Computed example of a mutant assay.
Amino acid sequence: MRTFRDRVRHALLFEAVALAIFIPGSALVFDQPIAHMGVIGVASATIATLWNFVFNMGFDRALLRLRGSVHKTMAIRVAHTFLFEAGLVIMLIPMIAWYLGIGLWAAFLMDLAIVTFYLVYGFLFNIAYDRLFPINAVAVPCAA
């Protein structure tokens, strides 16, 4: 299992590398000034991080109350992911539209592209992170 320190390193590296890719890449793809996409990137990452904390705490409490356990089946994990992303999209679309002076539909499409980037990036980042910083195997005593 990863230590608290390792989880902090993971979170900081995840966001730093993501923003280093996202900001210039999105400025190019969306034909927006790099400074504007920097604001969108940092604001979105901050909102996503805070939402992740609040949502996961609330989701686990709801599971405990409704099911008596925080154990997640595959169906619950799918629902968890969908609800998390839906909440994030609802929060980010108005902010993106307002800040960039674009319509809600354009902001929705932009946010879909951002979500797609982060899904692919997160998958690849975590594979790379696990290879660069492997979890040390802990010897488990054998039952005699």
Rank of each mutant, 00 (worst) to 15 (best):
V115G: 03
M91V: 05
I21S: 01
L104D: 07
W105T: 13
G25W: 02
F59Q: 00
R61N: 11
H36Q: 14
Y129V: 07
L104W: 12
N126M: 06
F30P: 01
I135D: 13
I102M: 12
D130R: 11
A128R: 07
Q32K: 09
P141E: 06
I34P: 06
I76S: 02
F108E: 00
I76A: 09
I96P: 06
V89E: 04
A11V: 12
F108N: 02
D60P: 05
W105F: 13
G101V: 13
F14Y: 15
I127W: 04
P141K: 08
G68D: 04
R131P: 03
A75V: 02
V54Y: 00
A137C: 03
I34G: 07
E15Q: 06
V17F: 13
L19Q: 05
R131C: 04
L104Y: 13
G101T: 09
D60E: 15
P94C: 04
P94R: 08
M74V: 14
N136T: 09
F22T: 03
F59D: 05
L19S: 04
I96C: 11
A97R: 08
I47L: 12
P33C: 07
N52W: 05
L112T: 01
I127F: 04
A16E: 06
L28I: 15
K72R: 15
F108Y: 10
A139F: 03
L50P: 01
N52Q: 05
R7M: 11
A48H: 05
V70I: 14
N136I: 02
L50H: 01
G38N: 09
N126G: 06
M110A: 11
A18H: 10
Q32F: 00
A107Y: 07
R2V: 04
G41E: 00
I23R: 02
P141A: 10
I21W: 04
T49H: 03
A62P: 03
A62F: 12
Y121E: 10
V29G: 04
V29E: 03
S69V: 06
H71A: 13
F123N: 12
F30G: 00
Q32C: 00
I114F: 10
S26L: 07
G87D: 11
I21V: 14
D60I: 02
H36P: 01
M1L: 08
A45Y: 04
V115E: 03
R61L: 14
F4Y: 14
T46A: 15
A144F: 11
L119K: 09
M91D: 01
P24A: 09
A128N: 02
T116Y: 01
I21L: 15
T3C: 10
F84G: 08
G38P: 12
L64V: 08
F82N: 00
